[in-house]
């Protein structure tokens, strides 16, 4: 999942990085294929080259903000995102629906008495609203891939009708771009805005992937086979970034 996510981060782009796993993916991408990628963090760090080994919980601290190009603050960073400067955002999520709407707030049908309450938006709403493209990283579980999310924390393609985001006042040509799980990769159909299966991990069948989803995504004629982590990716992850397996162990179990 970390490697699939890292592979979507292009060199030379400005990439908005969320807490936890996206940080690891960003370091991996930067060490392998994207040395000129500029990481951006909501609390204001621009262009850091995080120190490794990666220490758990590090985000606003010196190890993650090491060798930055600029240190600003939250209003400045989100203004720059709103201005159109951020090419890619990477987000975690609790629930996602067929149009890429993301829930990280609550489960249940009654907002006032949630069955389960989660931390809420954090900066996710800004990322999915403002970045030109957004990658959502999520565990591959049936209860997470739902027809309709219980709560729209951050906007995907809304009801999927053409121009729904623009009508609501959201920035043009933005929205979810890829959904990454431990087993599969999804995109969104340009016309219908529905989630579509782009690839499955080598050794996993399409049927196994679809079984773990409440809705049926579009399936293209050619579903790509996703390569498992390469020896080089594993070497950087295990030896440079996370030798104590504080983060990659968790991702592997998922």
């Amino acid at each position: 999942m970390i490697c699939q996510c890292a592979r979507l981060m292009e060199d030379g782009k400005i990439v908005f990085i969320g807490y936890g796993m996206p940080q690891i993916a960003a370091i991996l991408a930067q060490r392998l294929h994207a040395p000129r990628m500029v990481q951006m963090y909501e609390f204001g760090a621009v262009g850091p080259l995080p120190a490794t080994p990666f220490v758990r919980f590090t985000m606003g601290g010196p190890r993650n903000c090491y060798k930055s190009l600029a240190w600003t603050n939250m209003n400045t960073i989100f203004a720059q995102a709103q201005l159109g400067m951020v090419d890619l955002g990477v987000l975690g999520a609790t629930q996602i629906d067929q149009f890429g709407n993301v829930n990280s707030t609550m489960l249940g049908s009654d907002y006032t008495r949630p069955e389960k309450r989660f931390p809420g938006s954090g900066g996710a709403n800004e990322v999915l609203t403002q970045c030109w493209r957004t990658v959502i990283v999520i565990m591959h579980e049936r209860r997470r891939f739902v027809k309709k999310v219980d709560f729209v924390t951050s906007p995907g393609y809304l009801d999927g009708t053409p121009g729904a985001r623009e009508r609501a006042g959201l920035p043009r040509e933005t929205g979810p771009w890829r959904v990454v799980t431990s087993k599969a990769l999804y995109g969104f159909d340009e016309q219908s805005k529905r989630m579509s299966l782009l690839g499955v991990l080598r050794g996993v069948t399409e049927a196994e992937v679809l079984k773990e989803m409440e809705f049926a995504p579009l399936v293209g004629e050619k579903v790509e086979q996703l390569e498992p982590p390469t020896a080089e990716e594993l070497r950087v992850l295990r030896h440079e970034i996370d030798p104590t397996r504080a983060i990659i162990g968790k991702a592997a179990r998922a």
């Binding site: 938006s121 709403n125 800004e126 729209v152 924390t153």
Partner: peptide
């Protein structure tokens, strides 16, 4: 959201009653 709550502080810091944002739109948030 982290961003709009921080923007509310900026509005408060400026002594104006509100600030505009393109965030939050079309969500249950």
């Amino acid at each position: 959201t982290n961003g709009t709550l921080t923007l509310r502080h900026l509005a408060g810091a400026m002594g104006v009653p509100f600030l505009p944002s393109r965030n939050l739109l079309a969500t249950d948030t």
